[in-house]
Amino acid sequence: MIFVSVVLIAGVSAMSIDLLQDEWNTFKLKHGKKYDPLEEHHRKQVFLYNKHIVEEHNQRYLRGETTYYMRINEFSDYFDTEINNSLYGFNITDYLLHVDKGATFIRPTDYIPEEINWEHRGAVTPVKNQRGCACCWAFSATGALEGQVFLSKNVLVSLSEQNLVDCDSRGDGCSSSGNMLSAFAYVSQNQGIDREDAYPYYARKQQCAFKNVTVGARSAGFTAIMFGNELILKEAVATRGPISIAFHAMHSFRTYKGGIYYEDRCNANNLNHAMLVVGYGRERNQDYWLVKNSWGTGWGLKGYAKVARNRGNNCGIATIASYPNIKL
């Protein structure tokens, strides 16, 4: 009997190992991953660790202990240094050097709707993908510019992140040292930013190739929104359209898949990632911000996230916010 039990246990263990190997192989195939044998060993360990974290978290979600769920994605075999170097590129220090040079947001006196979605209203371009370049700030900036162009001219034009990566001298290309205010200032001083179809994205810094004849938008500076106030951010989103924000995107954010994201380990002042708030609403008795990310449509809710609203400025979503002033 003991012998039979040992054989059964061994059989189950072998089956588990085979299933894990199949999942790993499927993951590599789906995301086009290829590694040499030594690197593959390390990558697989990272993948299995993240798989465990995701499954454990999702069990908590099913028990109602958390408000969002996660999924394995293309980043699930990344080392932490790779995540930091390829996804997060917001520089708060340089942002703060610029903030006093902008206009101050004037709070509206009119009625503010309880929900709004600028993507549904046509002010938001399709979700983009920064890929291995840590220039989230450029995508946040173009998103805000695109929204302001739409609201001013009733036309949606996709603008060039590559133009900012290559030409904004205060940014550092694909390194973690850019911010949206610097981008808005560049567009203002440069007398414009090119359309994306004329200056496509390559996910690496190249020589500046801006062309005056293909300008898609012109900026006249920016407006800053009061630090850390979610009510005022709501007013700005309702009346001024999509708003550039910064976010503390460490911990579980890279594996977010759905639900309303709330992370109590976040630091509202340690901001490392830039995104675009395109709306807000309420779901299952929970307030949320609708946020457009720049990690492709395979991440989150087809590239979007619903982030907890009115829960203590979670992850610093209202700590730093701004939008460009469009020059007509």
Results as ranks from 00 to 15, higher is better:
Phe3Thr: 13
Val4Thr: 12
Ile9Asn: 05
Ala10Tyr: 11
Ser13Pro: 01
Ile17Trp: 08
Lys30Arg: 14
Asp36Tyr: 13
Arg43Pro: 00
Gln45Ile: 15
Leu48Tyr: 12
Ile53Ala: 12
Glu56Tyr: 12
His57Gln: 12
Arg63Asn: 14
Glu65Met: 15
Ser76His: 05
Asp77His: 02
Phe79Cys: 07
Asp80Trp: 06
Glu82Ser: 12
Glu82Gln: 15
Asn84Met: 13
Asn84Ala: 13
Ser86Gln: 14
Asn91Leu: 02
Thr93Leu: 12
Thr93His: 11
Leu96Cys: 10
Asp100Pro: 04
Gly102Asn: 07
Ile106Arg: 11
Pro108Cys: 10
Thr109Leu: 12
Tyr111Pro: 03
Tyr111Phe: 14
Ile112Ala: 10
Pro113Val: 07
Glu114Tyr: 11
Ile116Asn: 04
Pro126Val: 08
Leu145Trp: 07
Val149Cys: 03
Asn163Lys: 00
Asp172Trp: 02
Gly178Ser: 09
Leu181Cys: 07
Ser182Leu: 07
Tyr186Ser: 00
Val187Lys: 04
Val187Met: 10
Val187Arg: 05
Gln189Tyr: 11
Asn190Gln: 15
Asn190Pro: 00
Gly192Tyr: 03
Glu196Cys: 01
Ala198Phe: 02
Pro200Gly: 07
Lys205Pro: 00
Phe222Ala: 05
Thr223Glu: 07
Ile232Lys: 04
Lys234Ser: 10
Glu235Gly: 10
Ala236Pro: 03
Ile245Ser: 05
Ile245His: 00
Tyr256Thr: 03
Gly258Cys: 07
Tyr262Cys: 08
Glu263Cys: 12
Asp264Lys: 14
Asp264Trp: 12
Arg265Leu: 15
Leu276Arg: 01
Val277Met: 05
Val278His: 02
Val278Pro: 01
Gly281Ser: 04
Arg282Ala: 09
Trp289Arg: 04
Lys292Glu: 10
Trp295Asp: 06
Gly296Val: 08
Gly300Phe: 05
Ala305Gln: 01
Lys306Pro: 01
Cys315Asn: 08
Asn325Phe: 06
Asn325Gln: 15
Ile326Met: 10
Leu328Thr: 11
